[in-house]
């Protein structure tokens, strides 16, 4: 009887050792893998049709809405200009430094800086005295400009690598508003201003142009419908009370960082003809 019990215990032990050995081997194979599984990234990408690189303004808004509604808790989203553009005031004017998001220097760049002096927005139409514009080519990823920096002015920095364009707008926070409302049909996009605001002029910021372009518009209640031109990335609205606001068409930069980058790709906006970089991140555990 006792021999039988010992034999059963030995068999059980052998079985346990066998199972442990198989698990250990499997674990060692798994640890060799450098990849990880993230179902959320796959799901987000397929739901937002991120397999395409060409995006419209409306599709980009849909992507952001979907992220905020459904993936905000599990993923991070980083939607920024295609290059990392830094604008720095210097003793002699200003400097623009451009790097890629993987921190490399791009050797052939065309950089332009447009300064819109906001004191000219209050009581008259923008003219050449309210604008400074400089353009340069660089092979070291940075360039000095004689345009001086004033914290109340608006700066549009436009960068081109051959015909790969991107931009960033540097503007005071107190005049920047997220009032743009994108709808499914681009003809009915509008700007929803706060109640009591009456717009008296609208300007389009088009990075390819050397100055803001005055545009036709109609106001119906709080909604302002602007006749924009292709390439419009933002609007400047002036009001009858002398206030002025900068309204971006897209909430760029959109930074909701969560952890490690899982997907890193360029979006080409076919309305703006400018490029953005999109990174989807997975929360660190």
């Amino acid at each position: 009887m006792i021999y039988r019990l010992v034999a059963e215990i030995a068999c059980t032990l052998m079985l346990i050792v066998l199972i442990a050995a198989i698990y250990a081997r499997q674990a060692s194979i798994t640890s060799l893998m450098i990849s990880s599984l993230s179902v959320d990234v796959v799901s987000f990408t397929s739901r937002t049709k991120l397999y395409s690189s060409m995006f419209t303004i409306n599709k980009t808004w849909e992507l952001i809405e979907m992220y905020e509604d459904e993936f905000n808790h599990t993923l991070g989203l980083f939607l920024v200009p295609a290059f990392n553009i830094t604008f720095i005031p210097t003793a002699t004017g200003s400097k623009v430094i451009v790097r890629t998001w993987s921190k490399h220097i791009i050797p052939f760049l065309n950089i332009t800086v447009l300064r819109i002096i906001t004191s000219g927005l209050t009581d008259k139409v923008i003219d050449s005295t309210d604008i400074e514009y400089k353009e340069t080519e660089t092979s070291v990823g940075e360039a000095d400009f004689s345009i001086s920096y004033n914290s109340s002015d608006i700066y549009v920095i436009f960068v081109g690598l051959y015909r790969f364009y991107t931009y960033t707008i540097v503007a005071p926070e107190n005049i920047t508003r997220q009032w743009y409302v994108a709808s499914n049909t681009s003809k009915t996009d509008y700007i929803e201003v706060e109640s009591g605001i009456t717009v008296n002029r609208t300007y389009l910021i088009i990075p390819h142009y050397k100055e803001p372009v005055e545009a036709n518009w109609t106001q119906s209640g709080n909604r302002v419908y602007v006749d924009e031109e292709p390439g419009t990335v933002a609007y400047i609205l002036t009001t009858d009370t002398g206030e002025y606001f900068l309204v971006n068409r897209l909430p760029i930069p959109y930074i909701a960082r969560k952890g490690s980058v899982e997907l890193f790709k360029y979006l080409i906006c076919n309305i703006d003809n400018v490029n953005y970089m999109l990174a989807v991140e997975v929360r660190k555990v």
């Binding site: 890629t100 998001w101 993987s102 050797p107 360029y266």
Partner: peptide, 9 residues
């Protein structure tokens, strides 16, 4: 040079 600069890290 260009592609390496534009590629993900």
């Amino acid at each position: 040079t260009i592609v390496t600069a534009l590629a993900p890290p």
